[in-house]
Amino acid sequence: MTTTMDRRSLLSRAALGATGLVAATAMGSLAPEAAFAAQTPDAGQPDPNFAEGVITGRNQDLLQVQGSDGRLHRIQLTGVTSVWKLRPTTIDQARIGDGLYARGVLLPDGILAAEAIWVNIVNLTVAITAIGRNGVQFDHHGQKVVGHVQSGTTAAVYNGTPAVSDLSMLTVGRHAQVIGAWRPGTNEIDIATIYTSN
């Protein structure tokens, strides 16, 4: 924890310009294409640098993932892997039974070195059918989905204006797009962001 705090404090000072630069700014070294020159996959084909599926095993920071397209993946998490599970979080939060999307670099030994993983993330186009204290009920292509509000995390975007924590303008009958985290084995999600109109 101390190291996290030290690193955060160092990064804060760097961002505010309180640290010295070691390298002169050379725009030539910033060519983004160079970093992503890796082969682009063919249209319609699986992307080897991407994985989708359910976590079926975990050995320290190596995940075993069963893809819905039949592919099996081994995914290596590291300290620099970004992990989203309702909010940016730490790699220990990826658990057996969770669904995931991962992007990284496929190593020659077949392991995907993950740069970013999104755990249980869903992006649903829904209609709001009820709003209660226990959650917001959605109709998702005819299926019922219950969305839970997590204080301090759940945000709403009304008519494209900046996101706010105020959910009191949610209206029954409106369409919405919901980014959330699925609760494995249920038809329930925790809402990260709900885009709607008021």
Partner: peptide, 23 residues
């Protein structure tokens, strides 16, 4: 249901000054 919410929205107290991360 709309009427019930107009009479008392279950999330009436959720507004806060904290900026959501998505913003």
């Amino acid at each position: 249901r709309r009427l019930r919410i107009r009479l008392g929205h279950p999330y009436a107290g959720t507004a806060s000054d904290d900026t959501p991360l998505v913003a």
